[in-house]
Amino acid sequence: TEYKLVVVGAGGVGKSALTIQLIQNHFVDEYDPTIEDSYRKQVVIDGETCLLDILDTAGQEEYSAMRDQYMRTGEGFLCVFAINNTKSFEDIHQYREQIKRVKDSDDVPMVLVGNKCDLAARTVESRQAQDLARSYGIPYIETSAKTRQGVEDAFYTLVREIRQH
């Protein structure tokens, strides 16, 4: 089974770092803004072998026109913010609204991801993020692309959301 996953969120929150940590098991430290990259990885989730087709997208506003296209083809979405960047957390709402509009559905598989949880300088409390996820009816997972904490959990949870859909 193949799953088309799309990673969305503001610029600099760590979308590529999360994806590369999942696929290649290493942490990319330097920031190089993405336009669009796709990665494929075969994994076993709950005993089922599946192929993850992951689209890593641009957070930069100037590429926002490309969003409709990949939102149409994606089956599930990782909505990523950084726990030390309140603005990126506030941006999640717009991504969710755009996904709902493009998919013409209120019920699209999504996982809210709070990345950079290895950093002490948190400005978005776990509780705020949990409340937001609960209001959307989606899971919330904290990750660190640096330490790998929660990385597999985030992507695998999204696959489970798609399966249950």
Rank of each mutant, 00 (worst) to 15 (best):
P33N: 02
T49I: 06
S126E: 10
Y156K: 15
L18T: 07
G9T: 00
Y156S: 14
Y3K: 11
Q24V: 15
Q149K: 10
R122T: 13
T147H: 12
I141M: 05
V44T: 11
K116D: 02
P139T: 09
D53K: 01
L158F: 02
V124A: 11
T49M: 09
L158H: 00
M66N: 12
E97A: 11
S88H: 06
F81G: 04
F155W: 12
A120K: 08
I35K: 01
R160K: 12
T147F: 09
Q21Y: 08
R40T: 10
D118A: 02
Y3V: 09
D32Y: 01
N25L: 06
A154R: 01
D56N: 01
A133F: 05
I83E: 11
A17N: 12
S144I: 09
Y136V: 09
V44H: 08
R148Q: 14
A17P: 01
S88A: 13
T19A: 13
T57A: 04
D106N: 12
G9W: 00
A133H: 03
K15S: 04
G137P: 02
L52P: 02
F27K: 01
D29G: 08
Q164I: 04
R127L: 10
T147Q: 11
C50Q: 07
D91Y: 12
Y140R: 01
E152C: 07
C79A: 08
V151H: 15
S105F: 10
T143E: 02
C50V: 11
D32K: 00
Q128N: 07
G11N: 14
K4T: 06
S126W: 06
A121K: 11
L78E: 02
L52N: 03
P109L: 07
N84S: 12
V159Q: 02
K87H: 07
I99G: 01
G59S: 05
R160V: 05
Q94V: 13
L132R: 07
V13L: 07
G9M: 00
F89K: 04
I54Q: 00
T123F: 07
A129C: 07
R96C: 15
Y39P: 00
E97V: 05
M66I: 13
I83Q: 12
T143C: 13
L51F: 08
L5M: 10
L132V: 09
A133P: 02
A17R: 03
N85V: 04
T57R: 02
I83T: 15
Q98Y: 15
Q42G: 12
I99N: 02
Q98M: 15
D106C: 09
V8M: 05
K41D: 07
G74E: 04
A65E: 08
T19C: 08
Q94F: 15
R96K: 10
I23Q: 07
E30N: 04
G74W: 04
S38K: 03
I54V: 08
R134V: 06
S144Y: 06
Q149S: 08
R127D: 10
Y140A: 03
S16F: 00
Y140D: 01
G74R: 06
E97H: 07
S64N: 14
I162M: 13
L18S: 06
Q149D: 10
